[in-house]
Design a protein around this nucleic acid. Structure first.
Length: 119
RNA sequence: UGAGUAGGUCGGGGGAUCGCGGCUUGGCGGGGUAACCCGUGCAAGGCGAGGAAAGUCCGGACUCCACAGGGUACGGUGCCGGGUAAUUCCCGGGCGAGGUGACUCGCGGAUAGGGCCACAGAAACAGACCGCGUCGCCACUCCCUUCCCUGCACAGCAGGGCUAUGGUCAGGACGACGUAAGGGUGAAAAGGUGGUGUAAGAGACCACCGGCGUGCCGGGUAACCGGUGCGGCCAGGUAACCCCCACCGGGAGCAAGGCCAAGCAGAGGGGAAAGCUAUACGCUGGGGCGCGGCCCGUGCCCUCUUCCUCGAUGUCUGCGAAUGAUGUCGUCACAGUGUGACGUCAUCGGACUCAGAGGGGGAAGCAACCUUCGGGUAGGCUGCUGGAGAGAGCGGGUGACUGCUCUCCUAGAUAGAUGAUCACCGGGCCACUGGGUGAAUGACCCCGGUCAGGAACCCGCAGUGGUCAACAGAAUCCGGCUUACAGACCGACUCAGGCC
RNA sequence: GCCCCCAUCGUCUAGUCUGGUCUAGGACACAGGCCUUUCAAGCCUGGUACAUGGGUUCAAAUCCCGUUGGGGGCA
C-alpha cells in the first residue's frame, strides 16, 4: 500500500525515526495496523521532472522486490537524494535491504533473504 | 569534388519475464423487487508521453463575475495586401541595408507639439572662439618726416637719439559690423563638386549630382514604382522618452466553476417585492375646553412607540347622579281579602357625564439577499478529454490556407501512472582483418594499349571486437512563438574547380 | 498546474521610475598599518559587486526581449 495523503507524510517525518544512506533517507513509524505502507518523495533539489521520476521509480522498484520481507505494521517514507541518478536498480535494492535491516524492519527469513541477495 | 543557403521528415525496432495507471468484459463482495449502482491486494482483452510534453511569451475555446451607448485613461500592435476562431503567428508583395550568389536582416510619424542630447566644443538647433574682411579709435612696434646730438669741412651727407611733431603703407591692441569657406571638439556640426560673384564670403546665383516637398500623367486593390513640371536647400539624433495617427483589448482563470461531506465566529455597510411588527421615555404633531374683539398668544386636559392618511358628535368595557321598571317592607289616603301616593332596600335598564381601551392603509424598524473584513475545511465526485482532431484521395489558390468524400479513435494521473531484468536486430564512431579502385616499377606488343605488381590515399562493401545513443515527462484543451537537443534521412538551390 | 514579484561587493542595502557627472555610494565584515605590554575600541589605507545572452541608443546597472536562479500567492 502507498502513502498518499500529505498529513501521513508529515506524521511519519515528525514522529518517526530516520536512517540516512548516501542514496536516500528512510523514515519509519508504526501505524497500528497489519499492513506496510510506503511513501516515496523526491524534492526539486533532486533534479528536473525526468530525474525526479527516475529516482522515484528506482526506489519503488527496489521496494517492490523487498516488500514481502518487511515487518508489517509500519509506515515507511523514502526520500530520494540526487546520487540515486548515478546508480542502477540492483545497487539500490542492496542498499535498501541493508538500511531496512539496520532499522529492524526485515523479517528474518532465510529463503527470502537468499532470494533478495540472489536477484 | 569542395564550400555554402533555405526547407522538410524522423527522434531506434520488435520480443520474453516480473510490475504500474485508466477503460471494457467477467468473477467476488455489498445494496436494490428489478433495471442497475457501489467497491475490489482477482482474471482476461485492448490502450498508455513529446517535437519540444518545457518556458508560460502571444492568441483563442471553455467557466465564473461584470456589462445601455459613447468618450477618456491604461495596455498592446505598427510598410501594404491576404490567411485564420484569433494573434506579437504564417504567406505573398514593396522599400532599404548586407552578401559574388542562393539568400538573410530591418520597417508608421522627428515641418503636430514637448522633453533630452553627459564630457568636449563658439555653438547640440540655430550659433560666432580662432579665422577671413570693412570701418572707427589708439599711437605700442616698424617706416617716413620734423626736431635734437655727434662726425665729415657743413649745399648737404652719414650715424645715433626721441617720456619731442606730423603721416598711416604694413603689423599689433581695442570696439562695431559683415561672413560661415577653413580650423579644432564631438557619437553627431548645417547638401557635394566646379564656376560666377564679393571687401571677405555664402545656394546669393549657375551647371551637374544627391536629397526633400508638391502638382499632373501612367501602372498597381494597396504599400509603392516609372515619367514629367514646379518650389527651393526646409535646416541633426532620440518615439524599445512623453506623444501623434490608425487598429485591437471588460476582468479573472480548470487550484476557473458546480455538487456532497466535515468544520468554524462572527462583525461592518447596502437592502426590491411579499410577509411580520413589541415595550418605555422625551420631542414634535393632532384634538377639545377656558381667557383676551380677531390673527395669534397663553393656560389646562386628552390622544398615539414616532410620523402621514382614511374613518369617527362612532365602537367596546367599567363606575354611576337624575330617571324608569319590577319586587319586599313601612307610613298615609281611598277603600275593603284591594288600589294609589310617598319613603327605604334589592334587582334590571340607563341618555348624558366620568374613567379606560380600540380600527383600516402607508413609511420608519425586522428580514431574504448582496458586499467588505474575519473565521473554518485541504476529503470525495464532477469539470475531464471526440477535437478549430488525424490520415488518404480529388479539387481551388503563386502561397499561407481551404472545400468535398472516405477511413480511423489516439493517455487522463492526482505524493501524480511508462519501470526493472535479459538477450536479439538496426544506427554512429574507433581498432583489426578481408575485398574493391589502383601510382611507382617490370615485361610484351608497339609511338598507345595489355599483363604482372601492390605503396600511400580514398570508399565503407563484408566480418570481429569495443564504445556511444541527446534534450527531456502529459495535468482543461487547441493554434503559434521562443528556448534545449546525440544523431540520421530527403529532395531543392547557389558559388568555385575538374571532366564529358 | 495557474498567476505574480525579485536578482547590485562576503552580508544588508542606495542608485533603476526620469539613461550620461557611476571608474557604482554607505554600513558591517576581510586584509595591512598606527595606537596599546597585549586584546578590544578608535584612526588611516586597500581589495571586493550591477545574475546571464542579445537588442535600442552616441552612450545601458537603468529601456526592450530571451535565458538562468530565487521568493510569494491561488480550493
Amino acid at each position: 500500500m502507498r502513502l498518499r495523503r500529505p498529513e501521513d507524510f508529515r506524521r511519519v517525518r515528525t514522529g518517526g525515526r530516520s536512517w540516512a544512506h548516501p542514496l536516500f533517507i528512510l523514515w519509519r513509524l508504526p501505524n497500528g495496523g497489519a499492513v506496510t505502507r510506503i511513501g516515496i518523495a523526491a524534492s526539486r533539489r533532486v533534479g528536473n521532472a525526468v530525474e525526479r521520476n527516475r529516482a522515484r521509480r528506482l526506489l519503488r522498484e527496489a521496494m517492490r522486490h523487498l516488500y514481502h520481507q518487511v515487518t508489517v505494521g509500519w509506515d515507511i517514507v523514502l526520500v530520494a537524494r540526487s546520487t540515486l541518478l548515478k546508480t542502477d536498480e540492483r545497487e539500490v535494492e542492496v542498499a535498501l535491504s541493508t538500511v531496512l535491516e539496520r532499522a529492524g524492519l526485515l523479517t528474518v527469513n532465510d529463503a527470502s533473504s537468499c532470494q533478495a541477495s540472489g536477484v
